[in-house]
Design a protein around this nucleic acid. Structure first.
Lengths: 239, 239
DNA sequence: CGAGGTCTTGAAGACGATCAACAAACGTGG
DNA sequence: CCACGTTTGTTGATCGTCTTCAAGACCTCG
């Protein structure tokens, strides 16, 4: 669990041994949330932030008419609500898409780190900035790209992010998403997701079945998605 | 210019006199960018961040087929690319929508602040987190709400954010956006924006003409937008 | 006065939503 | 081990929203 956190932070930021020691001493309170249960309630005021250890979860908004939209998908190693450390009012919920192991870190502990370790602070900050970059990518796409291109892009992004944390390979990956969940991610209807998925299948690009995605033709898939992974910031930088 | 920065930061975070003194000593290199020119080039690697002093600008993505989508709108007082301080590769450009006065802050200066002033660091971090919250709001809306509701929401958000920095009132505000720009903000065609705007007009909610938005019925407008301004984080917090 | 930019209007068509029915997969308890 | 209900995926038909294309009105500025 501690190793997961350190490994994840280290992949984006160059850390000293001292930094890593501080991370290792962060109080991590382990927990478990069953599939389809809330990890964070919409409109709560959390006093701790949550690290996703295993499983997958998503941030969501619900509107007055009951419509739901996911605004972000989280894979193991992600700090799913690090922003609640400074953004005191939660403006969205976080839902466990599969059974999830989590680890909670009290906000005071994070505050203590930020008071004393500037480089680590920047590394944590960077983590939330990458979230923002992903948001922008999705915003641009939802506004201007076809549903097929967006579905292809979702698959490419998931593939890249899962590989980044050592899950799955370029040949494929496991993912606990139903077509209805994909619909809420892309802002489509479940029926339409089903049809677009068939397009990608018959096009020989992707085979998504049961909870597994098999990538048949990465080149054509990433081309139709206009996928460019710089926005994911997958290299370690000197902060 | 310095006052603008301090006033802006202070409205979200409780700062000490020492903090404010540090802000006042930040090197601000003044500049000017004419309407329709880039403030930041897509895919550059900036070594400084830009504070918008007057005017309005927008972050944008351009796709291979030439389609453009704005992912964020900036009003005076906003740090338009503070994230470039840690996110070394720019994944989008920033376009001046009107003539803009700006002030550049070298990344080294920001780094020095983050090395020595934890509270200020958190205040800056918070600023980028609010950007993220706005992104999520838009993402959710673009996925699940009607174009009319989204246009209404854009107007509500602009009204709130402009008032926050002392521009405009609840009766209306000035804004240098053509209908084509609104289209790129909402992911619609200019023609459709025109028609939805007429709906809001004939519905007696908003009168948007030339570069001025007159709000005729805030209650109905914000109701149809489901506008809830908590995500804008307009109160000062102890960080 | 003419030219370019912006707004407005109409008509046709594409994309995706909705509704409804059915099929397949899964887990549970009898 | 089968019967059953529930959940998820699949298909077809219809409908609405928004896009595209094209033309014309209006405005501002040289």
């Amino acid at each position: 669990m501690k190793e997961l956190l350190i490994r994840k932070m280290e992949r984006r930021a160059v850390l000293t041994e001292a930094d890593k020691a501080v991370l290792a001493e962060l109080p991590l309170d382990p927990g478990f949330v069953g599939a389809k249960h809330d990890i964070v309630r919409q409109s709560g005021r959390p006093t701790k932030s949550t690290l996703l250890v295993s499983g997958m979860c998503a941030r969501y908004h619900v509107f007055a008419d009951g419509k739901r939209q996911f605004t972000q998908l989280h894979v193991p190693g992600d700090f799913v609500d690090l922003h609640s450390f400074l953004l005191t009012a939660m403006d969205h919920g976080v839902l466990a898409l599969s059974d999830c192991e989590i680890a909670s870190v009290p906000h005071e502990a994070i505050k203590r780190v930020t008071d004393t370790h500037p480089r680590l602070t920047r590394a944590l900050w960077l983590d939330t900035l990458v979230d923002g970059a992903i948001h922008r990518q999705w915003l641009a796409r939802m506004g201007r790209q076809s549903s097929a291109a967006n579905l292809a892009h979702l698959i490419c992004e998931l593939c890249a992010r899962l590989q980044f944390v050592g899950l799955g390979s370029s040949a494929g990956f496991d993912v606990p998403l139903r077509q209805e969940d994909v619909a809420d991610l892309l802002g489509l209807s479940p029926v339409h997701v089903n049809r677009v998925l068939q397009e990608l299948r018959t096009g020989g690009m992707v085979w998504w079945e049961h909870q597994h995605v098999r990538i048949l033709d990465w080149d054509r898939l990433s081309a139709m998605a206009e996928f460019d992974l710089t926005y994911l910031q997958l290299e370690a930088h000197e902060l």
